[in-house]
Design a protein around this nucleic acid. Sequence first.
DNA 1: GTGTTTGCAAAGTGTTTGCAATTTA
DNA 2: TAAATTGCAAACACTTTGCAAACAC
Lengths: 139, 139
Amino acid sequence: MSSERPFADALNRLRGVELRPTRQRLALCKMLFEHGDRHLTAEVLHAEAQGAGIKVSLATVYNTLHQFTDAGLLREVIVDGGKTYFDTNTADHHHFYLEDECRLQDICGDAVAISGLPTAPDGTEVASVDVIVRVRKAQ
Amino acid sequence: MSSERPFADALNRLRGVELRPTRQRLALCKMLFEHGDRHLTAEVLHAEAQGAGIKVSLATVYNTLHQFTDAGLLREVIVDGGKTYFDTNTADHHHFYLEDECRLQDICGDAVAISGLPTAPDGTEVASVDVIVRVRKAQ
DNA sequence: GTGTTTGCAAAGTGTTTGCAATTTA
DNA sequence: TAAATTGCAAACACTTTGCAAACAC
């Protein structure tokens, strides 16, 4: 969620993770976090930036999304080969994947419990548990 | 699991789903189902076939894997952008994903229970519920 | 000024496709 | 022989990379 000072918010967010607030990063940060939780691909964010008259190259969008992910501002979600979604919600939660629309929808993590999982294979530890509920148009 | 007549098994399997038992399909079917549950990419299966002296093109491996998947002999697993794994276990189950090795390991579905999932979004129905436990080398 | 970031275009990866030649029934 | 299948090479979608020019501090 964002306050009513999107530029100041974006600036603070970047400062918080020690990324230089360049024009491109500020603009992308603003678009990403201004309107609640979002699930975007690099291409979609790039198109959105173009549409808003912001000059950013696709390569920079990719770089920025990965920097934000490394900094913990975003989370990557893999549901569909050959496409990467970036989720602005970094809290513990799961996803519906609407196959017909190639769209993600959050499932709040608090309500969901998974029981009966075996312990991680020898020598490994759990990094994350992802639940993806694939749904499609009811027949 | 397979009997001790891998060629006969492969033949029966193909007949069961009404796919012509061509030399390539027979060979791939045999490799896939002869040795218990496997998680393979097209490239790996292709390399394995080459190694065994079987002449198959990569394109045919892709086609065949998709035909087998459509026929219900295989299941696709997506865990890693830009790579598709095919799982010879079509029973309801989940996966560990060993990130360091890019390798999948089955989690039997019987033991695992997921509670608290909300109902599918309006107008949709659940196609599948995939749980992926990402693990990495314990530090 | 110095080091960081950007944009472009090229390269990379995994996958799909069109079509002539081959194989299966 | 008719229809299905194969293999090749080209095309494809998405992503990453190298490097010179532009920018932030």
